[in-house]
């Protein structure tokens, strides 16, 4: 339903109200105050959007691909089509074809305007590669690209490798969107080592004043539990356990993955879906000893009564 003030009829003849509603789905002009139908069968002067097949649908489209931060020119540049056809669909003559080929080549080169653009073009492909390997969704990629763009604008990349900064941006974006990936997971697919990424991460968060709170172990539950094939009931139980653990300060100074693994291990046993410590520790990428130490702490501090 579309609400617009009409211009031809300015006031309701019944009550004199100026609040008139033009409803295109019913083709009526009605008064918002008294409900009087002032005009019927009005003409919709808006664009025709209906399409009865795919070809028509394409013709109706008045826009291009959506804007995205993951392409260096935000996907807003023009492109010369690779097809050697003119606008009527006829083949382009051989002499023109060579010309078009050269234009295409130069257009592609000119698209990357300056050093910043070149940097972005390279970094964003790397970002895309990394996030594909990590199976990250669209919105996180956009977020990471946004962080990277800000870093470029503030000239923070100077003296750091593009790879380490892109990895750091992905790490930041994942944490901002509350689907944390551990640094280790990112390192697996990145060409730089963990220390370097950690350094870039600290530098960027400091310079861009991104305030990230330490990852909560709770954020890891869905991922770990799914990988272990555990039910929603176990996940809820694990969340309860973790909330209790956070309250008594059991998370302070302990790695969130380890605490989460222990909570899942306990929850699985309590709900009768036992997984071995080995399985849990492999999913969380911590050692079995860590799982054992953490779950013992949790049992002791929270007074949970379970038969291991």
């Amino acid at each position: 339903m579309e609400k617009t003030e009409t211009k031809t009829v300015h006031a309701c003849p019944e009550c004199g109200s100026h609040k008139l509603i033009r409803d295109y789905s019913r083709a009526e002009v009605t008064c918002d105050e008294c409900g009087l139908v002032i005009s019927e069968d009005i003409i919709d002067t808006g664009p025709e959007w209906r399409a009865f097949d795919h070809e028509q649908g394409e013709k109706r489209g008045r826009v291009g691909a959506p804007m995205t931060y993951t392409i260096h020119d935000k996907g807003l540049s023009t492109m010369i089509d690779w097809k050697n056809k003119d606008i009527h669909g006829r083949d382009i003559s051989a002499g023109r074809r060579a010309q078009i080929y050269r234009m295409r080549k130069w257009h592609k080169r000119i698209k990357v305007a300056d050093a910043k653009d070149r940097n972005l073009a390279f970094a964003l492909t790397e970002l895309d590669r990394l996030s594909s390997h990590l199976h990250l969704p669209r919105n996180i990629r956009e977020g990471a690209a946004m962080v990277y763009r800000k870093a470029v604008d503030k000239r923070l990349i100077r003296g750091r490798s593009i790879e380490s900064v892109t990895s750091a941006c992905i790490y930041i974006a994942c944490r901002e969107y509350k689907v944390p990936r551990t640094l280790d997971e990112i390192v697996e697919h990145s060409r730089v080592d963990k220390k370097e990424i950690g350094r870039s991460y600290r530098f960027i968060t400091r310079e861009l004043e991104i305030k990230l709170y330490p990852t909560s172990p709770v954020d890891y539950i869905p991922r770990f539990a799914t990988e272990l094939g555990l039910s929603g009931k176990v996940q809820r139980k694990a969340q309860d356990i973790l909330e209790g653990a956070i309250k008594v300060g059991l998370t302070s100074g302990r790695g969130p993955t380890g605490v989460c693994a222990a909570a899942i291990y306990l929850a699985a046993i309590m709900e009768g879906e036992r997984r071995t410590q080995k399985a849990v520790s492999e999913v969380a990428k911590v050692t079995e000893v860590t799982v054992r130490n953490r779950y013992k702490e949790i049992i002791e501090k929270l007074g949970i009564d379970v038969k291991i």
Partner: peptide
């Protein structure tokens, strides 16, 4: 202050 329990417990 900085606190990254994933990387360093302090």
């Amino acid at each position: 202050c900085e606190y990254e329990p994933e990387q360093f417990p302090g």
